[in-house]
Simulated scan of single mutants.
Amino acid sequence: MPDRQVERAVQLLDELERNREMSAVDVEHAVYGVLTAAGYAVSTPSPGRPDIGIDMEFQGRINGEPERVGVEVKSHRGKVSGQTIYKAMDAMRATGLDRILIVALGGYSNLALERAGIERLGKVDLLDIPDLRSWLQRHETFDEPETKSVRQILRHAMRELALRLAVEPTEIYDVEWRDMERLLGEVFQRLGFTTHVTPSAKDGGIDVHLVDPEGRAFIVEVKHWLSKVGTGAVKRLVEVTARKGARSGLLLATGGFADVIFDGLIEVKAPVRLGDANKIVSLCQAFYRAETQLWQPDNSLEDLLLAETLALSDPPIVPTI
């Protein structure tokens, strides 16, 4: 956005946060002004049209794709209920919109957040005023695209792939193996790790090297295969993790793991964890939440990285995707 548009949008957002006595109509006008100041062409329902749960509509590029977005503004200071989410979904279907953006001054109940969860990723965005600030910074109007370097284009493409897998997990097998490594590099970077994706040749058994804000190192090895991973790959990661002095190693295998690896390594006491396609999708869904400002991790990055994975002493896992 141009500087003057940014300044005007910020002023309106400040007013929304500061003035708790604004009427419902004034709040809607302020949100309309914010979106207009941000460069969106916003339209409102014509007078006399039945209220179907949409206060205004605009077009924009959401995650790189042009979409029609409906906006519902909840001006009361109480938390939005779960029923509001169902009504928003009904309104989206009735009007042919691509997405619903709900802006609530009072936040959202746990049930509302749950109902707008994984099964509706990419359809409903729940934002309060601070979230709306971040949302505007992340999404674009229909301006002419800027000239970008090849590296920038590749990074953008990998982020798009991660967002796609978050909502369509079964397409994970359509991703090329090298793109999977790059994709996960973008995911880890967005979640808060300092990330280095190693060159494909002579990577030394490390596909992605991570460092968390506390300075702890983690090693991620990615086996994006249809077949199951055997003992050799696990042993190599155990050795590399020990040699590099990493806090933990994570082996992600899209096709899962052969039963025999647990027979041969069950007594190994090494900080190595195993994850399958479900773990990769879970990471992409965490990335989605971080990108849309609907979620920030409550636990440490280490907990986020190793959640839903197995130690070598655990039973084997079979992918469900």
Rank of each mutant, 00 (worst) to 15 (best):
R77H: 06
E67V: 12
A41Y: 02
T36R: 10
G48D: 04
R20G: 00
K79A: 11
E67Y: 08
G48T: 04
E21I: 01
K79D: 00
L16R: 04
M56D: 09
A9M: 08
A9V: 09
V42M: 06
V10M: 06
D26A: 15
G33L: 07
E17S: 15
E21Q: 08
T36Y: 02
T44D: 00
V10R: 13
V31A: 05
T36N: 02
A38E: 00
D51Q: 02
Y32G: 08
K74L: 05
G70C: 12
R18I: 07
R18C: 02
N63W: 15
V80D: 00
S46E: 14
E21G: 02
R18V: 01
V25M: 02
L35Y: 07
A38P: 03
A41T: 08
E65A: 10
E72T: 13
D14W: 07
L35C: 01
E67H: 14
L16I: 10
E65S: 10
V42H: 10
R61H: 14
L13R: 08
V69I: 15
S81Q: 00
E15I: 01
V73R: 11
T44M: 04
P45K: 03
Y40C: 04
V25L: 06
D55W: 08
E72A: 14
S46K: 13
S81K: 05
E67K: 15
S43W: 08
F58K: 13
E65C: 05
Q11T: 05
D55G: 13
A9G: 02
I54W: 12
I62G: 07
P47S: 09
S81A: 05
G33F: 09
T44Y: 00
Q11Y: 11
L16S: 08
M22T: 03
H29V: 11
